[in-house]
């Protein structure tokens, strides 16, 4: 790995983190009034907005409606100004389509889809600034938006990534670490039951190191969960106190 040194001899990464440290996470729920649920998350310099509409009647052709469960419809888009070089198409290119499919699979597995037959849930995700871990930030933002919309989930879905540099597993890779060409493992879990709902790995990794990298990523998911849960509790507590117990 010529040029940049991803992990210094002292055990620090390029942005000054240690291998097991996440980037700073900041999040807010209920950022839009129009949507049923919405959230904004910043993971380091990666910034993502998510909006959820539904469950509502299936729009655009009733043929899509399923008689036994809800249709989960996702749209992933990246703002034209989100990357270093200006993007031509915010959505619809290969990468966005793949990401859309991955998000759809992730949330199809997590939402209790059988509760709302013949309806549809829309999840719109927009990356405002891309600095690595776009899928992870999108999943985390969409989870918060779904919770804000009051849609039943098995559990939170938290996503995190991990890489492998100089015999050390690095959690929550940023753009520089991602683009250096090493291995990257992306994982989405249900943190309380430790089940994996999504796993993707690009480029090769020796089998002996796999468990170390996976453990690091799963630990990253749990850390993300703790941050998200605190944010949700703050938000819900605030609203519950205002409405009180008499809104039934």
């Amino acid at each position: 790995m010529a040029g940049v040194e991803l992990l210094s001899d002292q055990g620090f990464r390029i942005d000054g983190r240690r291998p097991h440290e996440l980037r700073k996470i900041e999040c807010r729920l209920g950022v839009f009034r129009q949507a049923d649920g919405s959230a904004y998350i910043e993971q380091g310099n990666t910034k993502v907005l998510a909006a959820v509409y539904g469950p509502h009647e299936v729009r655009g052709g009733r043929g899509k409606a399923l008689h036994d469960k809800v249709v989960v419809n996702c749209q992933y888009s990246m703002a034209t100004f989100s990357t270093g070089e200006r993007k031509r198409r915010p959505r619809g290119d290969r990468k966005s389509q793949e990401m859309t499919m991955h998000l759809q699979q992730t949330f199809d597995a997590t939402i209790l889809t059988t509760l709302y037959p013949r309806s549809q849930i829309d999840i719109f995700v927009e990356v405002l600034q891309a600095d690595g871990g776009n899928y992870c930030a999108s999943v985390n933002a969409a989870t918060l938006a779904l919770i804000d919309a009051g849609i039943p989930l098995k559990d939170y879905v938290c996503a995190s990534s991990a890489g492998f540099v100089r015999d050390t597993a690095l959690v929550d890779m940023n753009h520089l670490e991602e683009s250096s060409g090493g291995t990257e493992l992306i994982i989405a879990t249900l943190p309380k039951s430790q089940q994996i709902v999504f796993l993707e790995m690009n480029s090769r990794l020796h089998e002996d190191n796999l468990s170390a990298v996976m453990d690091r990523a799963v630990a990253g998911c749990t850390d993300v969960y703790n941050v998200l849960d605190t944010a949700v509790r703050d938000h819900v507590g605030e609203t519950a106190a205002a409405i009180g117990g008499d809104a039934a």
Binding site: G30, D36, G37, G54, P55, H56, L112, I147, D148, A149, G150, I151, P152, L153, K154, V232, R233, V236, T239, A240, I243, G245, A248
Partner: peptide, 22 residues
């Protein structure tokens, strides 16, 4: 629980009411 909200108990029935829902 499957939603974020307030726990309500009526005798033996436990339900969770989300604070914002359709």
């Amino acid at each position: 629980s499957t939603v974020a909200g307030v726990v309500e108990r009526v005798n033996k029935l436990i339900s969770v009411r989300p604070l914002k829902a359709r």
